[in-house]
């Protein structure tokens, strides 16, 4: 009965084991690309937790990512608090700002949540530009702190973080909370009529999604050494996240990891094509959607 779910966990473990060997096989440049893909995978999983289970489309997950990233970067530049604390505070800021600005819309029925998340990202983008003296504006920020100089250590940090995030989100997705979330996405009135305060669960899912988005955003900044709008705030990043989730397979948590790798690696591989690479990636995405509407992961899950 639980085979598909168990199977997705098995797929997750297989991916994890395969990823352990990456630094022994590929050049440090490729390992760098994989590191970015791992952080990106957390963005996508966080998005999938919210959309796939509670049915709420977050068009502004880069609001949480960006707040996490910029808070950590600004703290790192302007204060002497340790790097780890910067990252944690970044994540806290991502959750709080999300709860204040966005979560109230979760109480409403209709498209309001999606619209507000969209607006929140546009706001953040303007905010970064207006307060350029703190945020570096369009050029971005260079941060002094780095996680490590070794590409291997950076990679394994990212891998552990990604695996940990996946574990937590899988536990939630498969817990009673996940079941109630799915019920409220399917039929909110019926879920309420079974005695569930569905807003409570949606806010929780949103909070967890914001936590991991913020953490991953902050970590990415200290891996790359910079924070910029095009990297962690822009709507273009949101689109990539959404496309990755769809290509990988929604409502599976593990699928988004596949989707994230698909998008990031494909784009890297097609880099010589220049701007054309975006076109090719989009077409590949369309093809996946046409033939595998449930994403790449459905290849590995038996249908019954």
């Amino acid at each position: 009965m639980l085979i598909p779910k168990d199977r997705s966990i098995i797929i997750g473990i297989v991916i994890f084991i395969l990823l352990i060997f990456v630094p022994y096989i590929f050049s440090s440049y490729v390992v760098g690309v994989f590191t970015i893909a791992l952080y990106f995978a957390v963005f996508v999983m966080s998005w999938d937790l919210l959309f796939g289970y509670s049915g709420e489309v977050n068009f502004g997950s880069t609001f949480q990512i960006g707040i996490g990233a910029y808070t950590a970067a600004i703290l790192n530049i302007n204060t002497h608090i340790p790097l780890a604390l910067c990252i944690v505070l970044g994540a806290v800021a991502a959750i709080l700002s999300g709860l204040i600005l966005v979560a109230p819309a979760l109480r409403l029925k209709g498209p309001y949540f999606g619209l507000i998340t969209l607006v929140s990202v546009l706001l953040l983008e303007q905010f970064v530009t207006i307060f350029a003296q703190y945020t570096g504006g369009e050029i971005g920020l260079s941060v002094p702190g780095i996680i490590s100089v070794s590409s291997k250590i950076n990679y394994y940090m990212a891998l552990l973080f990604c695996a940990f995030s996946a574990m937590v989100m899988l536990v939630i997705a498969r817990s009673p909370i996940g079941l109630i979330l799915q019920a409220s996405a399917q039929d909110p009135i019926e879920a309420e009529s079974l005695g569930f305060n569905i807003t409570k669960y949606k806010v929780l899912a949103f909070g967890i999604s914001a936590l991991f988005s913020g953490l991953s955003g902050a970590l990415l900044v200290f891996y790359l050494g910079t924070a910029s709008v095009s990297l962690v705030v822009s709507i273009a990043v949101v689109l990539q996240i959404i496309i990755s989730a769809i290509i990988g397979g929604r409502r599976t948590i593990i699928g988004p990891i596949l989707g994230a790798f698909f998008i990031i690696l494909l784009r890297e591989w097609l880099q010589p094509l220049g701007q054309l690479s975006y076109v090719v990636v989009s077409i590949m995405g369309l093809i996946v959607l046409l033939f595998l509407p449930d994403g790449i992961i459905s290849l590995f899950l038996r249908k019954n």
Binding site: P176, G195, K200
Partner: peptide, 14 residues
């Protein structure tokens, strides 16, 4: 049916 037996509380395990 299990869904309807759940309590309205954050529970991570059944």
């Amino acid at each position: 049916i299990e869904l309807s037996l759940l309590e309205d509380k954050f529970q991570f395990f059944y």
